[in-house]
């Protein structure tokens, strides 16, 4: 299913999220099961399925990584369920260092300061990669699509690190 088509939006990575949101609500108003509660059983079931599709499409387009994956899938490059190891020694080394920093937070005298500095670093790296990803996807060549796929794989590491950092922060707060 082409999620961009569902919302009648151009298939691009740089998406107008406000516009996406308002189209989402428009479709919800039409298809949400609450609008069909007086309908027949079959119609109510259809409404549930249709709304589930709309929700899924919205969820996928709203988030940059999923949106990029969907774009690549539409171009015939599927990476969402791939099982493949990653071999970029420089990148992996950098990830290991960041991971070690995370592990040391709880023992440090001023954990908040470290959390803030790691957060800044993650944010910066992520933004850089996202910019590169946008450029790669814009070009629409097979070669650039492969590059985009690689960038997505790298970004996944950063998103994962970020959620781990948030978890550590929560544990400290509680």
């Amino acid at each position: 299913m082409n999620y961009f088509q569902l919302f009648n939006l151009p298939a691009t990575f740089e998406l107008d999220l406000t516009e996406l949101g308002s189209r989402y609500l428009q479709l919800q108003r039409r298809f949400h099961p609450d609008q069909h509660s007086a309908g027949s059983e079959r119609d109510r079931l259809l409404a549930v399925q249709q709304t589930a599709n709309i929700n899924d499409a919205y969820y996928s387009l709203k988030q940059p990584l999923l949106r990029a994956e969907h774009l690549l899938a539409l171009r015939g490059l599927k990476i969402s369920h791939e099982q493949r190891s990653f071999t970029d020694p420089v990148f992996l080394m950098q990830q290991m260092e960041l991971r070690e920093q995370l592990a040391e937070i709880s023992q440090s005298a001023d954990p908040d300061a470290i959390i803030n500095s790691i957060e800044r670093e993650l944010q910066q790296q992520k933004n850089q990669l996202l910019q590169q990803l946008a450029n790669a996807l814009e070009t629409k060549s097979a070669e650039q699509d492969q590059l985009a796929a690689d960038l997505i794989r790298k970004l996944k590491f950063f998103f994962k690190l970020q959620s781990e950092l948030e978890l550590i922060e929560q544990q400290l707060q509680d």
Partner: peptide, 23 residues
């Protein structure tokens, strides 16, 4: 229901298009 399954699906597709065309 069986006879109208296709009809319902076609209406659904059309409905999505018109919802956003109107937009």
């Amino acid at each position: 229901n069986t006879l109208t399954d296709d009809f319902a699906a076609r209406r659904m597709d059309q409905s999505i298009r018109t919802a956003l065309t109107g937009h």
